[in-house]
Simulated scan of single mutants.
Amino acid sequence: MNVWKKSLALCLTLMMLASLAACGGDQEPDETPAEEPVTLRVAALKGPTAMGMVKLMDDSKPVTEAVEEEHEDVGTSGNLYDFTLAASADEVTPLLIQGELDMACVPANLASVLYNRTKGEIVTLAVNTLGVLYMVENGNAVQSLADLKGKTIVAAGKGSTPEYALRYLLSENGIDPDADVVIDWKSEHSECVAALATGAATIALLPQPFVTVAQGKIEGLRMALDLTKEWDALDNGSALLTGVVVARKEFVEDYPAAVSDFLEQYSASVDWVNANTADAAALIGEYEIVDAAVAEKALPYCNIVCITGSEMKEKLSGYLQVLFDADPASVGADPTDESSGLPADDFYYGA
């Protein structure tokens, strides 16, 4: 009798489980609605930051144009793009703050300045360019930073990354930038190239691709020092950075899938540019970012990357700390505003 009761109970239990499974099968699965296609308004500066984005620009162009022309046979499941190429960050900054751009490639310290200026309404998505600064020489006297002692260096970029990086590296190598060297500041990099070409200077601090341009004009001009390698040799946990990709916080919160898709596509574009120098240079020339011949020679020295997440935070926060220690205003800190200073964690997307 006990055996029969146990068998009946088992059968009833199995029937109930089967019934529940059948009911569950009739229900619609819980699905998060897919985001509608989003048009991302993105700006990049004519130089290494735009060079790394050129494949994404080219791949997205036919789809975006077709959608704008309302071709019915074109799928719109991914991002659409509206790219702007600017000559300077001054053109980009107001458009980003006013909401006329969603993302922009800007100098690394400017990202922090914008974060402070907007009270945290700017986030950094990725580091897109490591150091592109080189000490060039028309001669062979400079083999190390120590060799710069007593020399005159022409440079442009006073009050920005070139000055902060140069002063920091000189100081860390036992050279007083105010007493042991003469830094002749010019208003533009082209003026530095002109000084080298006329013989008025023999040593200059230049970024790529200006280094390549100068080498094309001045016979024997060589890259004496790579400031990125000199910075890395300090092994202080930071990195010399040139550019980052930032976005409006509101846009990131409203369109998380579009942002994720962008980063995936942008990373693929950077990988392609670094692996296909000749083809990438042709595209760069086509988009009038830099002359194709110059781009092909300069690309291996432009340190184009797409670093995101915790690695981005580590490198960028360390770099900003160095700038802050040298001059708090360089990262947007306002001595009259206690809330300003180095960016908080919400500045680093995905970290």
Rank of each mutant, 00 (worst) to 15 (best):
S7L: 15
T13V: 14
A21L: 12
G24I: 00
G24C: 11
D26W: 15
E28Y: 03
T32G: 04
A34G: 15
E35Q: 08
E36W: 10
V38T: 14
T39D: 14
V42E: 02
V42C: 06
V42H: 08
L45R: 10
P48H: 09
P48K: 09
T49E: 05
G52M: 03
M53V: 03
V54H: 08
M57A: 11
D58E: 11
D58K: 03
S60R: 00
P62Q: 04
P62R: 04
V63Y: 09
T64R: 01
E65W: 07
A66F: 01
E70N: 14
H71E: 12
T76G: 10
N79R: 10
A89M: 10
A89W: 05
G99C: 13
L101H: 05
L101Q: 05
A104T: 07
P107H: 05
N109M: 13
S112K: 02
V113W: 06
Y115H: 11
N116F: 00
R117P: 03
T118D: 06
K119I: 03
E121T: 09
L125A: 01
A126F: 09
E137G: 04
V142E: 14
Q143F: 08
A146S: 14
K149Q: 06
I153M: 10
A156K: 01
S160Q: 04
A165G: 06
R167H: 11
G174K: 06
V182T: 15
D184L: 11
K186A: 07
K186R: 07
E188K: 10
H189M: 12
S190Q: 13
E191Q: 10
A195W: 00
G199H: 08
A200N: 05
A200F: 01
T202Y: 00
T202G: 13
L205I: 02
F210P: 03
A214G: 01
Q215N: 09
K217P: 11
I218V: 08
G220W: 08
R222H: 11
L227P: 15
T228F: 09
W231I: 07
A239T: 10
L240T: 06
L241I: 15
T242Y: 10
T242A: 10
T242V: 06
V246H: 07
V246F: 06
A247F: 06
R248I: 00
R248T: 08
K249M: 03
E250L: 12
E250P: 11
Y255Q: 15
P256H: 00
A257R: 14
V259L: 07
L263K: 13
Q265D: 08
Q265T: 01
V270T: 10
W272L: 13
V273W: 04
A275V: 07
D279V: 01
Y287C: 06
A295G: 14
A298Y: 00
Y301E: 11
V305Q: 14
C306L: 04
C306S: 13
I307G: 01
K313Q: 14
K315D: 07
K315N: 09
S317A: 12
G318R: 09
Y319Q: 11
L320D: 04
L320I: 04
V322Q: 13
A326V: 09
P328Y: 03
A333W: 09
D334N: 13
E338Q: 12
P343F: 00
D346A: 00
D346H: 07
